[in-house]
Amino acid sequence: MSFSDWISQPVNWVFLGLALAVLAAGFRVVTSQNVVHAALFLVATLAGVAGLFVLLSAEFVAWVLVLVYIGAVVVLFLFGIMITRAPTGQDVGLDNRRARPVAAVVSLGLFGVLSWTSVRAFQDTAVAGVGERTPTDILGEALLGRFVFPFEVVGFVLLAALIGGITLARRDLTPKEEEERGAV
């Protein structure tokens, strides 16, 4: 398929716009020297990814992404940033400068290999578009039918993470504090 054929489909304009937004925001996530900005750029990235999911007929996953990620995970990140008192303003020490060239070479190489292999492997394989959205009841039946066991396992993982998070983050009382508390 030639580029002019490809670009002549309107849906691909939408894709192009979303993709550029995702990449630009993603780039800022890893380069921004302001930690709060980085977290907010992650919101933008994930919003773009959710848009791509809608484009790929996966509306339910898109909403899950928005609710879980943007709604909960990013908030968690902001909490983490605040609690660890990470410098919130401009900060030149956020990156390991000496690692930059190596990291750039490695990630560019990775991008080259990954995109080269995927283009070679899939050529012009077509994907379903916006109109053919996956009904949510199929997903529900799959989750509670064929995949009910992994579903339960994931639930258990979440529970373990909850307990683990509490255990790790709880501050142990110093002996003196413990004594005081015991006295009350």
Binding site: F15, L23, V30, T45, L52, S115, S118, Q123
Partner: peptide, 20 residues
């Protein structure tokens, strides 16, 4: 829409993640 366009985008996003 063809599959590689999404895969290349994903590869780029993944590489950005690796860089970070």
């Amino acid at each position: 829409m063809i599959l590689p366009q999404f895969l290349i985008l994903a590869a780029a996003l993944f590489s950005l993640g690796v860089y970070g």
